[in-house]
Amino acid sequence: MAYTQELLNTARPHDAAACGYGSPIEHDLGGLRIAFEADEFLGPCVTINGIEGEVTLTGEAEVREAIRALNTALNRNAALAARQMGSAA
């Protein structure tokens, strides 16, 4: 038996605010929804829904690599911002 939990949904006011939206917004209208499912055979499954559609990450390896890639994007963005601030000074 699988266990499912909604982790983030910008249709909820506090999730919308945490993501920088001024008001709640459904995922199919430009917001974001992330759900987690624990499956005894497949392991963790994460489904990300947005205006562009749906992506499902299946298994621990896929979820970890997606987290790694997203962290890389954040780090590169921070490094770029730091370089831009340094060149403006």
Rank of each mutant, 00 (worst) to 15 (best):
A18P: 02
A18V: 05
C19A: 14
C19D: 01
C19V: 11
G20K: 14
G20V: 11
G20Y: 14
Y21P: 00
Y21D: 03
Y21F: 15
Y21S: 01
Y21I: 11
Y21K: 07
Y21H: 13
G22P: 06
G22R: 13
G22M: 09
S23Q: 14
S23I: 10
P24H: 08
P24W: 12
P24M: 12
P24R: 05
I25M: 12
I25D: 02
I25V: 15
I25R: 01
I25Y: 00
E26M: 04
E26G: 01
E26Y: 03
E26R: 03
H27P: 00
L29R: 00
L29T: 03
G30T: 00
G30I: 04
G30Y: 02
G31L: 06
G31D: 01
G31Q: 00
L32G: 00
R33D: 01
I34W: 04
I34Y: 05
I34N: 03
I34H: 04
I34C: 06
A35E: 12
A35M: 08
A35T: 10
F36S: 02
F36L: 15
F36A: 13
F36M: 12
E37P: 00
E37T: 15
E37G: 04
A38G: 10
A38W: 15
A38S: 13
D39A: 09
D39Y: 08
D39Q: 06
E40A: 09
E40P: 02
F41A: 14
F41K: 10
L42R: 08
L42W: 08
L42V: 12
G43T: 14
P44W: 13
P44E: 14
C45V: 15
C45N: 14
V46Y: 03
V46C: 05
T47W: 04
T47I: 08
I48A: 06
I48M: 12
I48H: 03
I48T: 10
I48W: 04
I48Q: 04
N49H: 11
N49S: 13
N49M: 11
N49L: 13
G50A: 08
G50H: 08
G50E: 10
G50M: 09
G50N: 11
I51G: 01
I51E: 09
I51C: 00
I51D: 04
E52S: 11
E52W: 11
E52Y: 05
E52N: 05
G53V: 05
G53M: 08
G53W: 07
G53L: 10
G53P: 03
G53A: 06
E54A: 09
V55N: 03
V55K: 06
V55A: 07
V55R: 09
T56H: 03
T56S: 05
L57W: 10
L57T: 09
L57C: 08
T58S: 05
T58N: 06
G59L: 13
G59R: 12
G59S: 12
G59W: 07
E60P: 02
E60T: 09
A61C: 01
A61K: 13
E62Y: 04
E62S: 07
E62P: 02
V63P: 02
R64H: 07
E65L: 11
E65F: 08
E65T: 07
E65S: 06
A66V: 07
A66G: 01
I67R: 03
I67C: 02
I67Q: 05
I67A: 09
R68F: 12
R68W: 10
A69W: 12
A69S: 14
A69R: 14
A69G: 07
L70S: 11
L70V: 14
L70K: 07
